[in-house]
C-alpha cells in the first residue's frame, strides 16, 4: 500500500514537472500578451516530432537534439506569432484565442501529413535504463525529465527575477501602457515571450515523447492540463505554476491508483473548479 503510494508519487512528480513546464509558457503568454495560446499543445507535439526527425534522419544524439528542437520550435513559434497574433494587437482578447485555435488545427494536420498518424518511437538512450531506489522503480529517463523540468523552471525564475529583460516582462504583466511609456519595447518582449513559450513546450514534448511515443494528436491532453495548472497556479507566479504542476501530477497518479483510471483526468478539473469557486486568484496567486 505505502510502496504503491510512494511509487505513484514518484511518477506523479515526473509527469507533474512536465505539466509545470508546459504551463510556464502558457502562463507567460497569457500574462504578458493576454493571449490564450490554443496552439500550445501543438508546440509540444512539434517538439516530439522534430526531435524524432533530428535523431532518426540526421542521426543526432538525443542530448544534442533536445536544444536544437527547442530552438527550431522557438523559430516556428516566432513565425506563428507574426501571422496569428501580431495583426490583432489592438483587437479584443478573444480574437487571438480564435486564431491560435485555427493555428492548432493547421499544425496538427500538417504534422499528420508529414509524419503520419501512427505513433513513432522516440528512443532516448536513457529510456530503458532502470533505476531502483528501495522499492521504487524508475528509469533514468524519468529522473532526467524531473531534473530538467525543475532546472529549466528554476532558470526561468531567475531570468524573470534578476535579468533586465525579465523585469521588463514583469512590468508588462503589471501595466502594459505604463511599461510602454517607460520605453520598454513591448513588441520585442511579445516576440521573446512567445518564442520562449513555444520552446519550453517543445522541450516538454521531446522529453515526455521518449516515454509515451510521439504522434500528431499528442498535444491535446497537455494543453488541457496546462489550462488547469495555469488557473490553479495563479497569474505571473513561476513558483505557483511549479507547485501546481507537481500537485496535479501527484493527485492524478494517486487518483488513478486508488479510485479509477478513467477519472484520473477528471481530477485536475475537479481541483480546478474548487480553486475557481473558493480562490479565483489561484492557489498561489495574490489578489489581483
Amino acid at each position: 500500500m505505502w510502496v504503491l503510494a510512494l511509487q505513484q508519487v514518484a511518477n506523479g512528480l515526473v509527469v507533474g514537472s512536465m505539466y509545470a513546464l508546459m504551463s510556464i509558457g502558457m502562463m507567460l503568454i497569457l500574462g504578458i500578451m493576454s493571449v490564450i495560446n490554443m496552439s500550445h499543445g501543438e508546440f509540444y507535439m512539434l517538439g516530439g516530432m522534430i526531435c524524432f526527425t533530428l535523431m532518426e534522419k540526421l542521426g543526432m544524439n538525443y542530448f544534442v537534439a533536445l536544444p536544437v528542437t527547442a530552438l527550431a520550435v522557438a523559430l516556428i513559434g516566432l513565425a506563428a506569432q507574426q501571422v496569428t497574433i501580431r495583426p490583432l494587437d489592438r483587437r479584443p482578447w478573444f480574437t487571438t484565442f480564435l486564431t491560435t485555435f485555427g493555428l492548432s488545427m493547421i499544425l496538427r494536420d500538417v504534422a499528420q501529413i508529414i509524419w503520419g498518424a501512427d505513433p513513432l518511437e522516440l528512443s532516448s538512450p536513457l529510456a530503458r535504463k532502470k533505476v531502483v531506489l528501495g522499492d521504487i522503480f524508475l528509469t533514468q529517463q524519468r529522473i532526467f525529465i524531473l531534473l530538467s523540468g525543475v532546472t529549466i523552471i528554476g532558470l526561468l525564475y531567475l531570468f524573470i527575477r534578476k535579468n533586465r529583460v525579465g523585469m521588463a516582462m514583469r512590468a508588462l504583466v503589471r501595466d502594459r501602457d505604463a511599461a510602454a511609456m517607460m520605453g520598454i519595447n513591448t513588441a520585442a518582449i511579445n516576440r521573446l515571450t512567445f518564442a520562449l513559450g513555444a520552446a519550453t513546450a517543445a522541450f516538454a514534448g521531446a522529453l515526455l515523447g521518449a516515454l509515451f511515443n510521439v504522434y500528431p494528436t499528442m498535444g491535446e491532453l497537455p494543453l488541457v492540463k496546462a489550462f488547469a495548472v495555469v488557473i490553479m497556479g495563479g497569474m505571473g507566479n513561476v513558483q505557483g505554476i511549479l507547485f501546481s504542476g507537481l500537485i496535479l501530477g501527484v493527485a492524478e497518479s494517486l487518483a488513478a491508483s486508488f479510485i479509477s483510471l478513467g477519472y484520473a483526468d477528471a481530477i485536475s478539473f475537479a481541483i480546478l473548479i474548487g480553486v475557481l469557486l473558493f480562490k479565483p486568484q489561484g492557489l498561489f496567486g495574490k489578489k489581483a
Binding site: 504503491l4 511509487q7 505513484q8 511518477n11 509527469v15 505513433p119 516515454l211 509515451f212 511515443n213 494528436t217 499528442m218 491535446e220 491532453l221 492524478e252 497518479s253 488513478a256 491508483s257 483510471l261 484520473a264
Partner: peptide, 10 residues
C-alpha cells in the same frame, strides 16, 4: 489514446 500505463501497471 493513452500511452502512459505506469499508474495502472503499478
Amino acid at each position: 489514446n493513452q500511452t502512459d500505463f505506469n499508474t495502472l501497471l503499478l
